[in-house]
């Protein structure tokens, strides 16, 4: 067993882990962070994506011991003070999820994408999400959600996707009416 100290979603944890424990298993089994899921065993699907010191990584593709001394943010740490992160709102607004299994990873990767490129083109969004598989949505509404969050980040004069919830949350009712008017 190896002792690690990790900050996950703002809380410090100090634990003994088997070196072979994958970061995703540590998050799920030791910390109860089951929002981060496992979708494959070859690092293709991206369902397990979290942030390590603010950049996206596949938590099934690294060991928990490698996270020692680092900060991890999961989907469960994205909303702050009960307010959804703009990307969470955008995914809901744009119907960017169906079964929702890929969604935590998709949102975490989208966050990273907007952090590195606050004003991405459609193609840049698509390429930025190439490490995340979705079987339900055909990706179209996911791309749309990222575009919406990016637009909103620009309008609010802040960059969304900074890994925190600084962006202004969308008024769901207002947004619903807006979309309803065009449908």
């Amino acid at each position: 067993m190896t002792r690690i100290t990790v900050n996950v979603d703002g809380t410090k944890y100090s634990d003994e882990v088997e070196p072979r424990t994958l970061l995703v298993q540590y998050l799920r089994e030791s910390l109860g962070k089951t929002g981060t899921v496992i979708g494959c065993d070859t690092s293709n699907c991206g369902a397990c994506t979290v942030h390590l010191d603010g950049t996206s990584v596949k938590s099934c593709n690294m060991l928990a011991v490698q996270a020692d001394g680092h900060e991890v943010t999961t989907i469960e740490g994205l909303a702050k003070n009960g307010e959804l992160h703009p990307l969470q709102t955008a995914f809901h607004e744009c119907h960017a999820l169906q079964c929702g299994y890929c969604t935590p990873g998709m949102i975490m990767q989208s966050c990273d994408l907007l952090k590195n490129n606050p004003d991405p083109s459609e193609q840049e969004i698509r390429e930025g999400l190439e490490g995340n598989l979705c079987r339900c949505t055909g990706y179209q509404n996911i791309v749309k959600a990222v575009q919406q969050a990016a637009r909103q980040g620009k309008e609010s004069g802040q960059q969304s996707g900074q890994g925190d919830a600084d962006g202004n949350p969308v008024d769901l009712n207002e947004a619903e009416q807006t979309v309803g008017a065009t449908s």
Binding site: T34, T36, I75, E76, H95
Partner: peptide, 22 residues
Amino acid sequence: GKARRRKEDQRLITGRTRWTDN
């Protein structure tokens, strides 16, 4: 006929989902 946003989404976008393995 209304483009209602889904009721299901809240737990899915916040990672509080009840997958069997959870």
